[in-house]
């Protein structure tokens, strides 16, 4: 049921473009950008098959991919919901009510932080400072920042993703125009 782990021609051309912006022999520099693309294309997380595929594309050892994928917090090593809701919890967001946002989301979606709804639509995750302290409290879904949250705004965000969710790709990371 999951599609075969292989990029289409268009994406492969993009990967080539990425590799070519580094000096010859330094193609490993493309690893993080390519992992982002792989995560976006293959169900929002990095399975070992996906990571092995990326290793083969960059001509590096699988372990070099695993050790990087496990280091950075944006790479998911387990399946996540279609909409990964990341709520900032560090100082300024905490001081302006982020714990209320998390509790409200948990109640609304019937799951705890770190869990995914049964229909696979939503995952709630708490994260460290996203650089939006002036818009606290805030949360991020894909590439989108949602700032100055109120509970009404949280309602609207959830409803919005419910309506577009099934058609939505796992992340909103659009790499198509990468230079």
């Amino acid at each position: 049921m999951s599609k075969e782990i292989k990029f289409n021609e268009e994406t492969l051309a993009l990967v080539d473009k990425l590799i070519n912006r580094y000096p010859a022999g330094k193609q490993k520099s493309a690893l993080i950008p390519v992992l982002h693309i792989a995560q976006a294309e293959f169900n929002g997380w990095l399975s070992s098959e996906t990571m092995d595929y990326v290793a083969s594309l960059l001509k590096i050892k699988p372990i070099e991919v695993y050790e990087v994928a496990s280091f950075y917090s944006m790479f998911n090593l387990k399946p996540v919901g279609k909409c990964l809701i990341e709520v900032c919890r560090t100082s300024s967001c905490w001081a302006r009510g982020s714990e209320d946002v998390v509790r409200y989301l948990e109640k609304k979606l019937g799951i705890k932080e770190g869990e995914t709804t049964k229909d696979g639509m939503f995952t709630i995750k708490t994260v460290e400072c996203l650089g939006s302290c002036g818009g606290a409290p805030m949360l991020q879904v894909g590439a989108a920042f949602h700032e100055n949250l109120t509970l009404e705004k949280v309602d609207a965000i959830v409803e919005n993703y419910k309506s577009i969710g099934k058609q939505r790709s796992y992340t909103d990371l659009d790499y198509k125009n990468t230079i």
């Binding site: 993080i32 917090s73 944006m74």
Partner: peptide
């Protein structure tokens, strides 16, 4: 000039 995107690490 190129832009390199990180992946979440202070």
């Amino acid at each position: 000039i190129f832009v390199q995107v990180g992946a979440g690490a202070y």
